[in-house]
Nucleic acid binder design. Structure first.
Length: 549
DNA sequence: CGTCAAGGCCAG
DNA sequence: CTGGCCTTGACG
């Protein structure tokens, strides 16, 4: 049981404080807890370094802001084009912030990080970190901790497979076309920016406006993955396959089944499209700005927020307002767009399916976080909580998306920081395009039923607090809670939606439809996982496995 | 034939 | 070990 205490850190010490005496028996549970615990620790660090990086980089390099460096087709950086043309393309090395010297191993980096990455991979170097594997890497300190430097190289997307095993010199590799596209994209962004806002100067980010949601797993995810891999890294350098696995965590242009989720489904209303776009396009993100420091205008700041929508004045069951309180759509958005931004900043082309998995993974963390603070659920012991979440996570992910689409104008797609388009619908259908139609069918029915925020939160709790889940110890509590919410929803439907015929039973009748979608989505994800397309070591994969046991 | 990302070299 | 500069060679 000595393991147990450690594994339960997140749930017990930080979140599930009331359940300190409880035991975790299954290996699976331990893994989940372990993951969450690690993620949380790292995300805090990430958050802090993000803060300092953002301000430090921006202030420390004033000359680069006025005299940008060319990384474009000019080739020779020392004879850069006039600033007015290249403005906006100037970039800093995503690893250390030094001047970029060109594309190296997958992205724009400085000469020294290029050399460092090459030496590390070629010579199969294994480093150790004397601190806690979270050293800050910048130009002046990059030599201090090669472990963290290499970790950051992988984290930002440098590609192991671009280092040649045969050491052949010259020539071109498979990344050539990708570099070309990336350059074109950057030029396009610059052109659009100049066209849209001539003379407008980028405003530096307000310090500290980062991740209001808190749960960033970006750096942490890689750190976690990599640290999990470090034990085997000495092995990996002997086996190419394992190296590929490490690299696939960042992005691998070839293995990407982009077509699957890259379907463009057109635009929603133009204004919301604009608001939800997080690219530097038009909004202009300062070049020296950390990927972690950004702001986007949230629709929820406007009156269109579903939280501000009040339904007809009937007698509202008091429990409903409590449940609605537990929602935090702003955090949901912040986490989503923060991750999308951060995963594609300074990147060439990312694998959209991998990105999808990362977003889903993060959504799961947010979901756990929501659940552990919510009524009824928080009274349960850890084991029961886990069983409930393992049973309902995918239903909840799908439901949340439906809610965001219906009540918060979540658009069809969003432009990423690197210019790629990300299909937000793919999140709702867990990546499987074949589920789009059934999803729209459910949404259509919900529209007919005038599905509102209160219905949503009730359904959400009803799905989570499912008394039929096997192995629940405190079934009484779950069952009572379920009944209470069911009753509240019934009262609400009768009192506040009396003109929508039979709303209550029709709403409940849609839960199986939802289940069907999420279940097929899970199968799809599992299949992709078996094919090696999905990032490993994630809570998402852990959940997928949990159900199949 | 120029470009530019690979690998190589070597002073510090 | 680091990192600035050099050489190489497929590709357009």
């Amino acid at each position: 049981m000595s393991q147990t205490s450690e594994h339960r850190k997140y749930f017990n010490e930080e979140i599930f404080e009331k359940d300190l005496v409880l035991d975790l028996s299954s290996e699976n549970s331990k893994k989940v807890f372990n993951l969450i615990s690690l993620e949380l620790q790292s995300s805090e660090q990430d958050f802090q370094t993000g803060l300092s990086e953002g301000s430090l980089e921006f202030e420390a390099t004033p000359e680069t802001a006025t005299r940008p460096m060319s990384v474009d087709s000019g080739g020779d950086l020392r004879t850069a084009d006039p600033p007015d043309i290249k403005e906006g393309i100037q970039e800093l090395c995503p690893v250390c912030g030094d001047k970029v010297s060109g594309y190296h191993y997958g992205l724009l980096t400085c000469e020294s990080c290029k050399g460092f990455f090459k030496r590390t991979v070629q010579n199969k170097k294994v480093y150790t970190c004397v601190a806690d594997r979270s050293c800050h890497i910048d130009k002046s300190q990059r030599k201090r901790c090669p472990f963290c430097r290499f970790q950051k190289c992988l984290e930002v997307g440098m590609k192991l497979e671009a280092v040649r095993a045969d050491r052949m010199r010259g020539g071109r590799n498979k990344f050539g076309p990708m570099y070309k596209r990336d350059r074109a994209r950057k030029m396009q962004i610059v052109r659009e920016r100049q066209f849209c806002s001539p003379g407008e100067t980028p405003t530096p980010p307000a310090n500290g406006v980062i991740y209001p949601g808190g749960h960033q797993i970006t750096g942490a995810e890689i750190a976690l993955t990599y640290s999990a891999a470090t034990g085997t890294f000495q092995e990996t350098v002997k086996h190419d396959i394992q190296i590929q696995q490490v690299s696939s965590l960042t992005s691998s242009p070839d293995s990407s089944p982009n077509s699957q989720i890259n379907t463009s489904l057109g635009f929603g209303n133009l204004q919301s499209e604009k608001l939800w776009t997080i690219s530097s396009n038009g909004v202009s993100i300062p070049q020296a700005m950390s990927p972690k420091a950004y702001q986007f205008e949230s629709l929820l700041n406007s009156e269109s927020s579903s939280l501000n929508n009040t339904v007809s004045s009937g007698k509202m069951p008091p429990i409903l307002s409590d449940l609605v309180q537990s929602l935090d759509d702003k955090e949901w958005q912040s986490a989503l767009f923060g991750l999308l931004q951060n995963q594609t900043y300074n990147q060439c082309e990312v694998d959209l399916f991998e990105l999808l998995c990362k977003v889903l993974d993060q959504s799961l963390f947010t979901q756990v976080d929501w659940a552990r603070n919510s009524a009824f659920f928080k009274e349960l012991k850890v084991d029961d909580q886990m069983k409930l979440l393992q049973n309902s996570w995918s239903d909840l992910l799908v439901l949340d998306h439906i809610h965001q689409r219906m009540h918060n104008n979540l658009p069809e797609e969003t432009q990423l920081a690197n210019g790629q388009k990300f299909d937000l619908l793919s999140l709702a259908i867990l990546g499987s395009q074949s589920l789009a139609e059934p999803l729209f069918a459910v949404i259509s029915k919900l529209n007919d039923l005038r599905f509102d925020l209160h219905d949503y939160v009730c359904i959400k709790f009803l799905i989570l607090l499912n008394p039929d889940v096997r192995g629940i110890v405190n079934r009484r509590l779950v069952s009572d809670a379920h009944d209470q919410i069911r009753q509240a929803l019934f009262d609400f439907c009768v009192n506040c939606h009396s003109n929508t015929v039979d709303k209550f039973s029709k709403l409940l009748g849609l839960i199986p439809d939802l289940r069907a979608i999420s279940s097929r989505g899970e199968d799809f994800l599992y299949l992709k996982h078996l094919n090696g397309c999905a990032p490993t070591q994630t809570l998402l994969m852990e959940m997928l496995h949990a159900k199949r046991r």
